[in-house]
Nucleic acid binder design. Structure first.
Lengths: 252, 252
DNA sequence: GTGTTTATCGTCAGGCAGACGACTATGATC
DNA sequence: GATCATAGTCGTCTGCCTGACGATAAACAC
């Protein structure tokens, strides 16, 4: 072949993060405002260059900690609640995706519980949680405040891919518990599913499903009334990572 | 942050291919023999550098065509039989994965029908189909011929990830038809599932499932006896890409 | 106490999968 | 040509799971 491998073109490699959480019954993603061109002033996904001695997962975990202060869970127990779940999402390498140079971005997906301090460790005015629906809205002519969309670069595409991954993955895994605090009720877990899928679920059938799946939930013995109404049992995430049979996402 | 982005470290970016097919009732992957160090003489996955003006998917499709002569299907109809399905798998960027330099490899997964010429376009002695079980065998002390394992670099890990992706994806998609010729019988499709999953399936229940799923299979009107026994109806892959409800992989 | 909210248990019908019997249509063998 | 082996196709039955939904329980607000 006439192509000379020793003259391989140099690339910059970055990690970009789709950090999802559920806030006030809505699926939200972390967005940061760009301080420099290109796309100066526009919102984007957090991310940064991979360092010379870093693995890709390490780089993603470092960026996540810098932006949110979150630690990443042991990958062997990804469903454990109370910390963040982090996994590789996909890699984006269109030659035109960054006008400055050839950048290949390895996107990662992080799922986090609702954080007390939305932007710990960063400048609050330059990082915020925004509803996924807003971030992906094509245009916002009648917006009241400053529009957060469209995102810079190809980040709308990356975010959409991350959201779709999260939506499908909570079907057949216990990953939804990554959106919950260490102890949570069945109702709180149901509201996570409802927010991520954007549908209403039957509380009785949901309760039967999650409590009937062995290893999904472990009762802690405590109860809480923080959601109002009758006291609800508290649970921790069990060891099971795969849901079999899966939780079915309602049609339409 | 003390890290200077303008001094980002340069990376080489490659695509590696997990090309799977079903040959003689066994799941096989394409392996090539390395002609240069490191790992000279060892078997590896096909792959190569991404060129300066190429998208990642383009680079993967080019490498696939160079190694197998296969064209890639329209991504909008990935299940159409008779050509190859190609999708991004994952990206591997451990700093130590290539001793020469920092290489990030964007692995892709290709599914192909059984090819008449296993290594069209390449040197036959340096490219072959090998059973996945052999390629992933930890060691082969009593091997009769030249051992094909272990693979060079981290390619065993990449191959294992690709195989797992294929195994899970045929559960809920019509991707298994990508292993089949343009026209195929229900029995041939069942043997694909059996080879990929390594299990035996009940022919009657399988037949009921695949013919009862709308849009999965379209009868062509013809029949064949190439498998012996009673003539079987021939089908093409239908437009449906997602199987709902999914094909269940037997436990154990 | 009454109403509201949320949690939890139960019932019932329909759909689907696993197990498996029965029949059909070919080629191979005697 | 009869018999056998092979593979394909159609049915039946049972058990499990889900969706729809009624009913009860236990807290808080007034």
């Amino acid at each position: 072949m006439p192509y000379d491998p020793s003259a391989f073109p140099p690339f910059a490699v970055t990690v970009d993060l789709v950090v999802l959480t559920v806030r006030r019954h809505a699926l939200c993603a972390l967005a940061v405002r760009r301080g420099e061109p290109p796309f100066q002033g526009r919102w984007a996904l957090p991310g940064g260059f991979v360092r010379a001695d870093e693995d890709l997962a390490q780089a993603a975990a470092r960026e996540l900690a810098e932006e949110t202060g979150l630690r990443v869970h042991d990958p062997a127990a990804p469903a454990q609640a109370g910390g963040a779940h982090l996994e590789q999402l996909a890699t984006y390498g269109d030659p035109e995706r960054d006008p400055r140079m050839r950048v290949v971005s390895v996107a990662h997906l992080a799922l986090a519980p609702d954080l007390p301090a939305p932007t710990a460790g960063g400048d609050a005015s330059n990082a915020r949680w925004a509803q996924v629906g807003e971030l992906l809205r094509p245009a916002d002519p009648g917006g009241d405040g400053e529009p957060v969309a469209p995102l810079a670069f190809d980040h709308a595409r990356i975010l959409a891919d991350g959201v779709e991954r999260a939506r499908s993955k909570i079907e057949y895994s216990s990953l939804a518990t990554a959106f919950c605090p260490p102890e949570f009720t069945v109702g709180e877990l149901r509201r996570v599913y409802e927010a991520v899928w954007g549908v209403a679920l039957d509380p009785r059938n949901f309760h039967r499903k999650v409590t009937g799946t062995p290893g999904f939930l472990v009762p802690t013995g405590g109860t809480t009334t923080r959601q109002g109404g009758r006291p609800a049992q508290l649970f921790r995430a069990g060891g099971a990572t795969l849901l079999n049979p899966p939780m079915l996402r309602p049609e339409v």
